Simulated scan of single mutants.
Amino acid sequence: MSAAGPLRVVSWHPYPSKPRYVPPLGAVDAHCHVFGPMADFPFSPKAKYLPDDAGPDMLFALRARLGFSRSVVVQASCHGTDNRATLNAIARSGDSCRGVAVVDPAVNVAELEALHASGIRGVRFNFLKRLVGDAPKDKFLEVAKKIEPLGWHVVVYFEADILDEMVPFLEAIPTIVVVDHMGRSSMSEGPEGPQVSAFKQLLDEQPKIWTKVTCPDRLSAVGDPWDDFAAVVRPIVERYPDRVLWGTDWPHPNMEANIPDDGHLVDMIPRIAVTQDLQQRLLVDNPTRLYWL
């Protein structure tokens, strides 16, 4: 691991433990990122955080340690719409990575087709005000229509307090929609809390919407081993077994004050997907269907 340079931060565990849980063959970490290296792939001038380098070699080494075979690299907001760092990781992966890009709303079909040939299978729309300054829903819908012929999906990141205002936008997207981190619903309210219940109602009403059952380190109110997260998320995995994905969120952007042990994150999997069938769907079948078929 490299040391952080001036004004740059490290947000990943330096010595993650070896998980007790062994994932099934072909398991996919369906939500991770790469940062830089900055010398080759500079960060966006609009970046709200400046992480230390966390490139493909580090990602692949961690993946092997955790027992995973494949990865989905999600474009980090610090790189803006310059997807070269993500594409570099995919190119170096030997077909074991796919990607989710962030694109300029003016992107054209030829540019999208080039991204597809390079392993991109979705676009991400970010609505977190602390990370992005502008999130134009009308322009995003135009992008969603452009990617539909490619068979891509849309990943959407928002917080629970704006779920109601997001619903018409989510309904208007013509592709599969994957909501990051369950829309950051509150874990402290329990499995039947108002935010979790509202999110499950959305999933009930919109079969095209999937979600990532990820980030206990961000969402739990009680800390590792994140018992409140396990209690809330297990029923979600059981209720929507074919519409859930799992990922580490490595290298954990903006988590330098509460860096999780990635081995502990993996050991959460059998607590939220308690049977081999559910684990197979969560880690292999669902991400394979979305990213490799």
Score class of each variant (00 low, 15 high):
A160T: 13
D267C: 03
L202A: 06
V143H: 04
I173E: 08
F199G: 01
S188C: 07
A27K: 00
D262E: 15
P6F: 08
P16H: 03
A47P: 10
L87T: 04
S71L: 12
E205Q: 08
F125H: 13
E192C: 10
V72W: 01
L25M: 12
G67V: 02
L278R: 13
R281I: 09
Q280H: 15
A64G: 08
A64R: 15
C78E: 12
L50P: 01
L25I: 04
P37Q: 09
P216L: 08
V102R: 13
D277C: 07
H181F: 04
G36F: 00
P251R: 06
L7F: 14
F35R: 00
S186D: 11
L131W: 13
A76C: 15
M187G: 03
Y49C: 08
G119E: 00
A172D: 10
V123K: 06
A221N: 12
A273P: 05
M187P: 03
G183H: 03
V74M: 06
P51C: 04
L219D: 07
L115M: 14
Q75D: 07
S77Q: 07
L203H: 13
A61T: 15
M182R: 03
W226A: 06
D204I: 05
F229L: 06
V284L: 05
K212H: 14
Y291H: 10
G119F: 04
K46Y: 09
L87R: 07
V154L: 03
M58W: 06
E171T: 05
W246G: 00
M182T: 03
E142F: 04
L131Q: 11
E165H: 02
K146M: 07
F140V: 10
E192V: 05
Y21H: 11
R130Q: 11
I162M: 15
Y21Q: 04
R289G: 09
D53T: 01
P225M: 09
S11T: 12
V22K: 10
E111D: 09
V100W: 14
F158R: 01
L203T: 02
Y291P: 00
H252P: 13
H181E: 01
G133W: 04
V266Y: 08
A230H: 10
D40Y: 02
G193I: 05
G67Y: 09
G247V: 01
D277F: 03
D262G: 14
G26F: 05
A198I: 05
M1D: 05
V34Q: 01
R98E: 00
A27R: 02
Q206G: 04
D261W: 14
D161M: 10
R289F: 08
V107N: 11
G36S: 05
A110S: 15
R8C: 12
S93A: 10
G263P: 12
P56V: 13
V244W: 11
P14S: 07
H116S: 14
T81E: 12
D40G: 13
D95S: 14
A110Y: 03
A101S: 13
K137M: 14
P174I: 13
A4G: 13
Y240A: 09
Q195D: 10
L219F: 11
A221F: 12
D227C: 15
A47W: 15
Q195P: 01
G67C: 09
D261Y: 11
P241R: 14
P16N: 02
P216E: 14
A47F: 11
L278A: 08
K46H: 13
H31D: 02
V222Q: 07
S2G: 04
P287I: 02
V10H: 00
